[in-house]
Every structure is written in C-alpha cells, then in structure tokens.
Design a protein around this nucleic acid. Structure first.
Lengths: 347, 347
DNA sequence: CTGTTAGCGCCTTCAT
DNA sequence: ATGAAGGCGCTAACAG
C-alpha cells in the first residue's frame, strides 16, 4: 500500500497525480491544467503542450469524486436490472449499452426495484446521493408513470421502448415490431404460403399489439385471409396449447409468433402431430434468442447494438445540452434471420 | 429547478440537506452529526435523538462524492459484462448481485473488456478515477492472470468460479458442477438406467472437467460401465452430432449433458431417430435455462441468488476488514429440476 | 491567456 | 462527549 515517488531502488510507483502535481511539473497553475482539459480552446498551444506532456509523464487522470463534488455531474447513467427482461435480450443490450456509454465516457450503474413505485423511490436516492446524470428505462408499458416523474424532477432519461400512452415528451429508442412481423409475413408469402396465422400475447402489452399489427397489415396488403390470431402468455406450454387451437381452427401453413418462446411451443405441437416444421407448417419467432439458434427457428433479430448506441447518445446529449430542441425518437428495424423453420410451402 | 425552503404557498421543496444544515437544525456541530452517523457509540443518547430527528425532517442523506473524496472509498463494486456469459445465466446473477450488494449499501458499476489484458487495463482507470472498492470476477479459467494482478495492487476481489490453477488466495464462490452431474446420474440410476453416457465440452475449460468428473465418479460408485463420453463445443448442432456419435457408439439409455444447449442437441438427435426423449433415452441438461423449461428438459439449477449473496458478502468483508484471516471459499450445490426428459427407463 | 481565491460536503485531527 | 480547523481534488468566478 505504501507509495513512494522518490528515486529509491526498484520501480518507482508514482504517488497519485493530481491537478496540483501536474501544474507544478509543467510550471503553471492548477487552473491552467484544468483549462487544458476542459477548455482547450482558451489556452496557448505551447502551454498546452507543456501541460499535456506533464499529464502524460505523470499518468494523470482527473478524480471523478472531486469533479463530481464540484460540478454535480457524475458521468453515470443508471439502469434497472430485472430478473426477467421481456424477450430475454437483456444481457446483450446491457453489454452494448455499457460499451456505448463508455465510448462517451459514461458508466452504467445498476439498481433494482420491485415495481414502478419502488423504482421511483430509487430515483430519489440515486439522484440525491450519487448525482446520477440520467436514466435508461426499459420495459415501458401502458400506464407507465416513470418518465413523467423524471421529467417533473427535471432529470434526463431515455427509454428503450416507446411510450404506449402519450405520457410526455422524452427521447426514446425502439425496435419496430410491426416492421418485423411484416417482414416475416411477406417472406412467408413469397415462399408461397396463403394461410398465415399469428400466435401472440394477450392484449394490453403494447409490444404485443405492435407485433400483431405488422402481421395483420401485411396479410391485408397481400389480399389474404386474416385468420383470427391465437393468444397465450409467454410460456412454451401455453404457447403450445394456443398453437394447437390455432391449427385446429384455421389450418395455417405458416405461423408468425410474437416471441421465440411461443414459437417453440408451436414447434412442439407441430412435431407432436407428426408434422414437419418448415415443410408442413412454417414457424417464425421473434428476438433471435438462443432458443431460435438451437431450434433452427427463423426469427427476428433486434439491432441491440444500435439501440444501445442511440440510447447512450440521446442521454448524453440531454445531459450536456439541457435545453435542447425536441426529443429525438428512433425506431429501428429488426432483421429477419432465416432458418429451417420457414421453408417454402410444400407443393 | 428552482428550490426554496421558505414557508411560501404550495409544497415546500427542501433544498439539499447537508451535514451543516442538519447540524444547524439540531443545534449541534457538523462533527456531531457525522458522529451520529458513523460512530453512534460515542454520542450521548439525547443528542443522538435530536440529530436523528433533524436528519429525518430534512431528509438528509450523505453525499457519496464528498464521502468518497475524503475516505477514498466509493461503495461501488465493478463487474465486467461480457456479451456471452458461459451458461447464459448472467442476467439472473446480475439481478441477484445488484440486490445483494444493495442490501449491504454497495452499488454495481459495469465495464467491458475484450480480453483479460483489456480487463487489467480497465482496472487501472476504474481504481484511479472511480475509487472502485472491489471487483466481482466471472469466467475464471486456467491461466487466469486477473486475480494475481488485483492481489498485487492490493485490491479486494471475489470470483464467481474457482481458480482452476492455484493462482493465489482470494475468496471465491462457485457451484459444484460435479455434485450436480452426480445428482443427475444417481437420479437416473434410481430410475433404472444402466447405460448412462455423458455429452460434454472439449477439454480444458475447468467447468467442463468438473461436470464430467461428477458423472464419472457416480458411474463408478454405482458399479456401472463407464461409457466413453462424447464432446462438442457449446452449440446445439455440434451437440447433436456428438450425441449421434455417442448413441451409435455406446447405446445409452440416458445422457447427462454439460449444458442445456448440448442437451437440446441430444434431444434433436433422439427425436430425429424416431425415439422418444425420456422413454427411450433420458436426457439431463445443466443450468436450468429458458431452454430447459421450454423443452421439458430436466436440468440442474444454479443457486444464483445464494452465489450473489456470498459474493457481495465476501467482497464487503474484504473491503471493510482489509487484513482479515484467510479468504473464505464457498461451494454451493445446484439443484436437480426434474422434467419429462428423465422418465424411468422403459421396461 | 493565466493565476488567485474560494468552496463543493464530508471526515480526520486535535482541542476543549 | 462535543466543537473548531483543515483539507481531500477539482472548477467557477474573478483578477491581472
């Protein structure tokens, strides 16, 4: 633990470099060093060079806590972790977000909450004690009060997910589920399918309605029969029952599903009936999770790296330009990944 | 943004409470307030009561950056996010860890790195600028240099995963993979199986060898034939080929797998041969991921909540008692979750 | 363009 | 048991 900066034997472990030590080394004042870092335009070139050299030699890095104490900015974004993120894409998003934020020199701090109310309580502590600069919110849903609360206290936030009721004006990034199911449906039409069903979630989830609508509109545009969809909660067993019901009722040759889990339920049912997935009944899932790779399931991949990059960028912009124009909103298209479950219709 | 603490109309929004404002309110000095919080034993009861009342009325919370600037402690643990955590249990671990750390008043901050070298570079910045109190490391592997580095700089760390070569003495928490595959094997033996194969990963992963050994020892203890195992990288297609090879070569009635993904590959192969999973060939996976729930796959659930709680506890202990006795090491048993893929042997 | 002064909120040291 | 002074490292405001 002992540090020494002298010229004793062995390697010299530099004591912590501070603004002051850099200033002394460069023969200028602390303020000038600070200016070189924070307002480089207002310092003469030769002075800057001297200072930068000193910074380099000493391996100086500004101390966050000191900066934060002075500026009330932490360069930290907070993100809630849930035990089960909708669509099981959380870990990939998290990785991308940490990277994207890091590229802008922000860090991600995590918190947990049991529900929206608990989350709002958490904000207070996070803001009061940690000076969190902004929040990345996921899992937006109808009746969501979180963004309204944050906007009331004047704290920047961005949501991964559209606001499903027009609660205020904050920037958001989302994946266009409708475009995804439309692409899936059009792909199936091109494969020769004419009876294309939809296996979705119960009403009221926003995301579910979005994904359903893309299928429905594509069916209408193609002039096909709009087979009444079947619905189940996001569980393979429930999905299997719902698929059974859908098949009995509408005899589809292809099924577009709201999620990979539901799709796997459909696959189980199709297989159990002695039919061939792909050849007899095509299936397309959503989210391109491990499940789809493993099951040969065609699916829609969310562009999570881009989502994360936009989230970080929008939030950083908001933090750094508090009175920026109107909030930007980004809608990205998922990409159809074709596997064996969506073969051409059997002739 | 404007705050006022007067008694004007409307709700009073308290300006930020500080040690000073609490002291004024309670009619004591700042130092006494600090003592009430940090050294309650050395302050008279009535004084403490007064101060606590003031803290409560003002909603005072110590400001982390100020504490940190003074104490060089951040109350933050850092954790690396990888895009693919081994065994796809990362998000559940993360949630549990955030909660467990929060209960001890620590927060989790994330960082990324491309490899071990990049991670070690990241340490420097994290320590220098953020005063990170400790690191939770995952994905330990043979030849891991990270813990040695941290121990050299004297920074507390705990690993989720054993050190696979005896690199130093740090606390760790791990799940006993051998106990898991042993439990799976013994369960199959009780079901009447006599030819129980193993589908594992290629050599050299530590975790893979651990899981294999539990199966092998259980087989020996039961006096059964030790069918030479088959191996594949953690991919369903590879797993399927390896399962085919295993079945052709050893004709097992049950297969213990190193992961759910491999198990799903085995299931595909069994199904494709027109055999029944469970009745003809039983299969047991590892990790109890979404895949197993969806596929009716018996599997071994890792006690991630306990793992996380121990990680947080060990790290906090290390931070708060720098010269504690020898590092504690915790090995937890996974729990066998029985589903339809491990039915009794067909008579 | 550069230097000086002051203070963010807290805790450590010393005095009372 | 309580209070006063000082400083952690940095930057805002002003002076030169």
């Amino acid at each position: 633990m002992a540090e020494h900066s002298g010229t004793g034997p062995g390697r010299t472990i530099p004591a912590r470099a501070t603004l002051g030590s850099v200033a002394a080394r460069a023969g200028v004042s602390k303020q000038t060093v600070s200016n070189v870092i924070n307002s480089p335009h207002m310092v003469r070139e030769d002075t800057a060079a001297k200072v930068l050299a000193a910074i380099d030699e000493l391996g100086y890095r500004p101390h966050r806590a000191a900066q934060q104490l002075r500026t009330r900015r932490s360069r930290v974004f907070a993100l809630r972790v849930q035990n089960r993120f909708p669509d099981a894409v959380f870990d990939r998003f998290l990785h991308a977000l940490t990277g994207a934020a890091g590229a802008l020199d922000y860090r991600i701090m995590l918190y947990t909450a049991d529900d929206d109310a608990g989350e709002i309580t958490a904000y207070d502590e996070l803001l009061d004690r940690w000076d969190i600069d902004g929040f990345v919110l996921t899992g937006t849903h109808p009746g969501d009060t979180r963004t309204a609360h944050l906007s009331r206290v004047g704290v920047p936030c961005v949501t991964f997910g559209r606001p499903w009721d027009d609660s205020g004006h904050h920037p958001w990034v989302d994946v266009d589920g409708a475009a995804g199911t439309r692409a899936a449906t059009e792909h199936l039409v091109r494969q020769g399918h004419r009876r294309i069903g939809f296996l979705g979630w119960p009403d009221g989830s926003g995301v579910g309605g979005d994904r359903l609508s893309g299928w429905a509109n594509a069916i209408r545009d193609a002039g096909l029969d709009l087979l009444p969809p079947s619905r189940a909660v996001n569980d393979a067993e429930q999905g299997r029952s719902a698929a059974a019901e859908l098949i009995d009722r509408t005899h589809p040759t292809a099924i577009v599903c709201a999620s990979d889990v539901l799709a796997l339920g459909a696959i189980s049912e199709i297989t159990a009936r002695g039919m061939n997935v792909g050849a007899d009944v095509a299936v397309i899932g959503f989210d391109d999770t491990d499940i789809s790779a493993v099951a040969g399931l065609s699916s829609l991949a969310q562009p999570l790296v881009d989502v994360a990059a936009h989230c970080a960028r929008l939030l950083a912009t908001l933090v750094e330009n508090p009175s920026d124009s109107r909030p930007e909103q980004v809608l990205l298209e998922p990409q159809l990944v074709i596997r064996s479950s969506s073969a051409p219709v059997r002739r």
